[in-house]
Amino acid sequence: MRKIIRISDAMTAHMPGLKTWRALPVPGISQLDPYIFLNHHGYEEFPANNQGLPFGPHPHRGFETLTFIVEGELVHQDSQGFSSRILKGGVQWMTAGAGIIHSETSSDEFLEKGGPMEILQLWINLPAAQKMSPAHYQGFQKEEIPELRIGEGFKLNLICGTYDGSEGPVQSPYPQFMSTLEAPAGSRLHWDSKTEQIFFYLVKGSIKVNGREMNKRQLAQFEGSPGSMDIEVLDDAYIILGEAEPINEPVVSYGPFVMNSEAEIQQAIMDYQAGKMGRWTES
């Protein structure tokens, strides 16, 4: 079985009007190459006549963002002309590449009526050869994501990559596998991994993985070699499970930019200021 190096709690990082926990980076884990950042917003109930999500227009360059809508909704708009409203169970995947400006907010309906909200955003690095690839957005509702029954009682939602002859809808310039797992208490799963890196985050519930107990908002770091995982669900669980080969390149980040050198960060700032990542216009 694949050895667990550590299990880390997400850190409190609340924002005005939004409960937030940061699961990556945390003390002891600066990154899980190519996974570099994870924020977990909610669960919380928004009242009627609320302010909604606070993520107004901002730029990105050099990586990809994957947003999981566990509860509620998310409205995306960007400088490339993409826009969508993704509901519970769906995902948004944005390849920032050479640069893009986007916003992640709430619909007028949600602002008026309120409701439950739980979303997570994962940043996935791109290798140097792909950092300046064209920006692109993909949004998929729950019903557009293949749902596979695996193990004893597990449901695998296949977002990116392939599994048992099925293919996820997301296309990424960097080869990888990404999914979510849902299972009630008592479920079991044996998972064989053939990659060096695993991303394994427990959104909610409690489980045992390779004999170690995990509870909600915890991240597991595994040793960097292929191996297996045995998962036993103790309390209804929702898991993010990804696999990829490490990029093994220098990572230099500054706010919304993730590059390989300080010079590239300075260039990203100048390009943004010069409008080379697009101009923002409200739809």
Rank of each mutant, 00 (worst) to 15 (best):
E264Q: 05
D78Q: 11
G56I: 13
P25M: 12
F68N: 06
Q121Y: 01
N210G: 15
V91Q: 05
E104R: 13
Q141Y: 11
S193C: 13
I145V: 12
P54V: 10
E152W: 10
P27R: 13
G17K: 06
L234W: 11
F68E: 12
I100C: 06
V70I: 11
H136E: 15
L87W: 11
G168A: 08
Q221T: 04
D271I: 14
V26E: 00
T195G: 01
E213Y: 10
I269G: 01
I265W: 00
L87M: 11
E104F: 14
E45D: 15
V209I: 15
A220L: 07
W280E: 14
R85W: 03
L120R: 03
A274G: 11
W280G: 11
W123S: 01
L181W: 08
Q176S: 06
W191E: 06
F37N: 02
G242P: 00
D164L: 13
D108T: 07
I198K: 06
W191Y: 14
M94R: 00
W21M: 15
P25G: 05
V203P: 00
F37Q: 01
F82I: 10
V26R: 02
I29G: 00
G227P: 05
E112V: 11
A237S: 13
K155P: 07
F222E: 03
F55W: 09
F257Q: 13
G28E: 08
Q273G: 09
Q51S: 09
Q92A: 06
V70L: 05
L120I: 12
E196F: 03
I124V: 04
P16K: 14
R212Y: 09
E264W: 02
W93D: 07
H60F: 05
F37K: 02
P256L: 07
M117P: 02
D271N: 10
